[in-house]
Design a protein around this nucleic acid. Structure first.
Length: 427
RNA sequence: GCCGGGGUAGCUCAGCGGUAGAGCGCCGGGCUGUUAACCCGGUGGUCGGGGGUUCGAAUCCCCUCCCCGGCGCCA
């Protein structure tokens, strides 16, 4: 049985198995803290009362050895969790060699032994929290009429800039790892209308920040007939659903991670404020940041802006030249586009980017040419505007960034088990 | 790509021209209740790699590789 259940069986017999988390061998007793997928439990092997073979096994057990123990559960305030197993039997299933992680190691070293580091209680709590957040978002989409679809990862052309593509050899031809499923989702709205996907996206930007991965988990939506505001509402509801899901289903993980729940409670309702790019520039100037209209909002600017809000918030209507060619210009103000970002508070920054898409063939073609892109490469994408084009909008959510904010992590690498960032590809 | 910091024992680091060090870990011993247990003893090194200066280089110089923090780019 799991340690969590065994801890509640005071006065009864229990049997637990797992890995040695801590071991303290005193003269008369051996204390072995056993870790499993649900927590830890202390096993006490008493040299005076336990069978000799159990004592020998406990003596031989090293940190991270796989063990199994059985006996009576007794309440004891000195035991972690308030109860412990008084061993009547103890078996060493597999003795671990000297475990290379003892505590106090540096990040570089720990990343080299990431396959072992991921056993830590802290990281385990993150994976659980992540599961809960993803589950909550999937459930929200499912209950609101969205179809989950499976777009390709191997693609021929870019969605974002071409300089940041990972190239692969496709039987002698060049192909690329997907940066975004957006174009494929756009193709699917003509039959399913509301679609979403969860895929890995790849960006070969040589970023050295704590919020970039080369390979990240991308939750994207696309909806026919939807305007920018419709898409923003979905984005807010999706994030709020994830936050609520974690508050309800991962409260122990939040507390193990030392995460304050106050910012999360404020974000549990999807009524996030929204400002335009123009207003953002105005707010920044008021704080003494020197920005000109048309400048991109960098990390410093984002940080200042997040100081104005204590919930996630939107920034909308960016200057056209700052954003991708597929975003639709505002009909009343063609120098800005109907695009939006959702920024997480507490300095975490951009979690979602979305827009209403350009749905007119000629306008899209003109924008592709304006950007110096080759229209031939976007032929099938342009085709979508030739056969029953409709207004549509969508967004992409960085799952890892959302988890990073919800869990209160100080680096995106710990939002997933084997992060691909910097020059790390091992393990 | 740019700016800054750093590579010395298994790990974290000190040493910064004159015989390679500490703490932790590990191994052995002790201890009837530990919470990263404690006490005693032992173990441990291509000083990231290459070249140079010097009587002598971990230490100074050049090249190179790797790591960390930040910027830009984005999710």
């Amino acid at each position: 049985m799991k340690t969590r259940r065994a801890l509640g069986l005071v006065g009864e017999e229990a049997r637990v198995r797992g890995w040695v988390y801590r071991k303290r061998d005193l003269g008369g007793k051996i204390f072995v803290v056993v870790r499993d997928s649900e927590g830890v439990m202390q096993v006490v092997v008493d040299r005076a009362t336990a069978p000799p073979e159990a004592v020998r096994a406990a003596e031989a057990a090293t940190i991270e050895s796989a063990v199994e123990a059985w006996g009576r559960v007794e309440a004891d305030p000195r035991a972690p969790g308030g109860a412990e197993l008084r061993a009547e039997g103890f078996v060493l299933h597999s003795r671990a060699e000297d475990f290379p992680i003892k505590g106090g190691e540096g990040v570089d070293y720990l990343l080299d032994v990431r396959h072992l580091w991921i056993r830590s209680r802290r990281l385990t709590a993150v994976w659980r929290l992540r599961h809960v957040a993803l589950h909550a978002m999937r459930r929200y989409l499912d209950e609101n009429g969205w179809w989950e679809v499976s777009p390709p990862i191997l693609t021929q052309s870019a969605v974002e800039g071409g300089a940041t593509l990972f190239e692969v050899n496709f039987f002698g031809r060049k192909a690329y790892l997907s940066q975004s499923a957006q174009f494929y989702l756009e193709a699917l709205i003509y039959s399913l209308e509301r679609v979403w996907s969860l895929t890995t996206s790849f960006r070969a930007e040589r970023s050295r920040t704590r919020r970039h991965l080369y390979e990240y988990w991308h939750l994207e939506t696309e909806e026919a007939w939807a305007r920018m505001r419709d898409s923003m509402r979905v984005a807010a509801e999706l994030v709020a659903a994830a936050v609520r899901g974690v508050l309800e289903g991962a409260s122990e993980e939040l507390s193990l991670l030392g995460r304050s729940t106050e910012p999360l409670e404020r974000a549990a309702r999807p009524d996030y404020p929204s400002i335009t790019y123009d207003e953002a520039v105005e707010l920044l100037r008021r704080k003494g940041v020197s920005v000109e209209w048309g400048d991109d909002l960098g990390a410093d600017e984002e940080r200042v802006l997040t100081g104005y809000f204590d919930t996630p918030f939107f920034v909308t209507h960016f200057p056209k030249h700052l954003k991708s060619f597929y975003m639709k210009p505002d009909p009343g103000r063609p120098e800005v586009v109907l695009g939006f970002d959702l920024l997480a508070p507490e300095g975490y920054g951009e979690v979602i980017g979305g827009s209403e898409r350009e749905d007119r063939y000629e306008a899209l073609l003109a924008r592709i040419r304006e950007e110096g892109l080759n229209p031939d490469e976007y032929r099938w994408y342009l085709d979508l505007r030739r056969y029953g084009s409709v207004p549509h909008s969508g967004f992409g959510l960085g799952v890892d960034r959302l988890v990073m904010w919800i869990a209160g992590l100080d680096h995106i690498r710990d939002s997933l088990p084997f992060p691909r960032f910097r020059d790390r590809i091992y393990p």
